[in-house]
Structure formats: structure tokens, C-alpha cells
């Protein structure tokens, strides 16, 4: 499986006009589009800040210490993502040296798993937070704060969920030799984007005083 463990750069990849891979540009362009998507969601949250007619209001309910921890978890997952990609790239670079290749690949897989685990951890925090809010009487339909908060963070959480699914798929596929460093890189681009969006959300929703 040593040879199969690293997919070859497929021969069908013709040279491109820019020398950049199609899928990589696709991912960048898609993330550009996603920026407007989250931009619209975040702007809506800001426009509706302080417009709720009934409570609970954000200052009564937001748990900044807890969310700081979950933010830290997500940030660490980005670090793990970087290490995972490095592992896969080094493994691909060590094509001649089977032992080193296996070693690097193992590292890559480990960090990929860590990224997924940390991502799942973040989702766990989010689920806990949502449940807490509901216990405190803040539901999706309670007021404008509930509406904008749950929809914004919910869509972000969904993105994280899709990312976790993606990472796990990469991990599984890597055992069948179907994962190229580029595949990991694309997943990484997406993952870092989702992470950055969270930093913005965390700053705007949690840290700016109401």
C-alpha cells in the first residue's frame, strides 16, 4: 500500500493558462462568494443589534468565557490543519523513501484527525450554548436577537459541520490512496475561511459591548 497511499499527480491535469490548478482557483472564487454570504448575514445582525422588543438581550445571556474557549479550540484546529497539510505534502515529496513517506503520511493523518476532532469540539460547544440559551428562554423566534443570532451562528456551524465531514472523508480516502496534497489543501482553504469568519463573528457578537 506504500505506493498506493499517495495518489499520483494525475496525468490528465493539462497545463493551465495561469499554472494554477483549476480547483484551487475554484475554491478561492467560491470563498469570495461566501464572503458576501456571511457579510450579508453579519450585516443583518449588526443592523438589528439592540432592536429586539423583548428579552432576553445579548448582555444577559452571552457567555464570553465559554465562547472564548470554543474560539480557542477552533483556532487550534486551524493550526492542526496546517500541520496536516504539511504532513501530506512532505509525504508526497518523499516519494522515493517509503519509510519516511509512511511516517509523514501518518503525521498528516493524525493532524487531519485532530482538526476534525477540534472542529467537532467546537460544534459541541455550540450545541451546548444553543441549549443553554433555549433554557434561558431565548429561542429562534423569541426576538430579533434570537433570530439573527441563531441564523448567523447556525449557518456558520453548518459550515463547520460540512468541513468536519469533508475532513473525515479525506481521512478515510487517504487509506485508499485517493488523497493528493492538493485535496488536503482545498479542504484546508475552506477550513481556514470558516475559522476566520468565526473570528469576525466572535468579535462582533461577543466582544463588542452591547
Amino acid at each position: 500500500m506504500s505506493d498506493a497511499a499517495i495518489a499520483h499527480e494525475a496525468p490528465e491535469e493539462h497545463p493551465t493558462s495561469t499554472g494554477l490548478n483549476h480547483r484551487k482557483i475554484l475554491m478561492w472564487a467560491f470563498l469570495g462568494s461566501e464572503c458576501i454570504f456571511f457579510g450579508s448575514l453579519i450585516t443583518t445582525y449588526l443592523v438589528y443589534r439592540g432592536k429586539s422588543v423583548v428579552g432576553p438581550y445579548p448582555s444577559e445571556i452571552l457567555n464570553i468565557p465559554l465562547t472564548s474557549v470554543s474560539t480557542f479550540v477552533l483556532l487550534m484546529s486551524s493550526l492542526a490543519m496546517v500541520l496536516a497539510l504539511a504532513g501530506f505534502e512532505r509525504a508526497a515529496g518523499a516519494a522515493g523513501d517509503v519509510e519516511r513517506q509512511q511516517q509523514e503520511l501518518k503525521k498528516g493523518r493524525f493532524w487531519l484527525l485532530m482538526t476534525a476532532v477540534l472542529g467537532t469540539g467546537f460544534l459541541g460547544f455550540q450545541a451546548y450554548e444553543f441549549i443553554e440559551f433555549v433554557h434561558h428562554g431565548l429561542g429562534l423566534t423569541t426576538n430579533l436577537f434570537g433570530t439573527t443570532f441563531f441564523v448567523l451562528t447556525g449557518f456558520h456551524g453548518t459550515h463547520v459541520g460540512v468541513g468536519v465531514l469533508w475532513l473525515v472523508s479525506l481521512l478515510v480516502l487517504s487509506y485508499f490512496g485517493k488523497v493528493k496534497p492538493l485535496d488536503v489543501e482545498l479542504g484546508g482553504l475552506y477550513w481556514h475561511f470558516v475559522d476566520i469568519v468565526w473570528i469576525i463573528i466572535f468579535t462582533l457578537i461577543y466582544l463588542i459591548p452591547h
Binding site: S33, I36, F37, L140, T141, L144, T147
Partner: peptide, 26 residues
């Protein structure tokens, strides 16, 4: 993406009862 978000808000309002365009809720 802008109309996507607008439509998501609309459908959330209609299907799940959120308040994006609910005047009474602000």
C-alpha cells in the same frame, strides 16, 4: 449571495417563524 441570504430570511420567517421581516418584533 445577497439574494440568497434575503430568501433564507424570508423562508425562515415563513417556515420557522423567525422575525427578520416582522414589524411587530422590531
Amino acid at each position: 449571495p445577497a439574494i440568497t441570504v434575503a430568501l433564507i430570511f424570508l423562508e425562515f420567517d415563513r417556515l420557522f417563524g423567525t422575525n427578520f421581516y416582522e414589524v411587530a418584533e422590531g
